[in-house]
Amino acid sequence: MDTTQLLKGVLDLAVLAVLREEDGYGYDILRRLREAGLEEVGDASVYGTLRRLFAAGLLTTYVVPSESGPHRKYYSLNTAGRDQLTRSGKLWCSFATTMNALLDDRGMAA
């Protein structure tokens, strides 16, 4: 099991999380994820996830003209997105706590 496989399950949550404070465009979001420590996240995965979250109605988009190069499509959380983030976040935290406890019992805590 490597990080990539783990990421698949939580990438939605990670993307929603980095959008909570500030809107961002694709590459910007990718960079924030990497800065947060998710080095192995794939470019295409992030872009694909953004599309899927948008299609699910959790994100809204708007286009910002840039002085250099093409227009940028910015993503931002809408109400449904925030609710989803809250719910998923709680779920993750309880899951993570459970996992940590499980591993801790077996003497494998980080």
Binding site: L11, G42, A44, S45, V46, Y47, G48, T49, R51, R52, A55
Partner: peptide, 8 residues
């Protein structure tokens, strides 16, 4: 392929 999978 990755894009397709991630976008569902």
């Amino acid at each position: 392929a990755e894009l397709r999978a991630a976008a569902g």
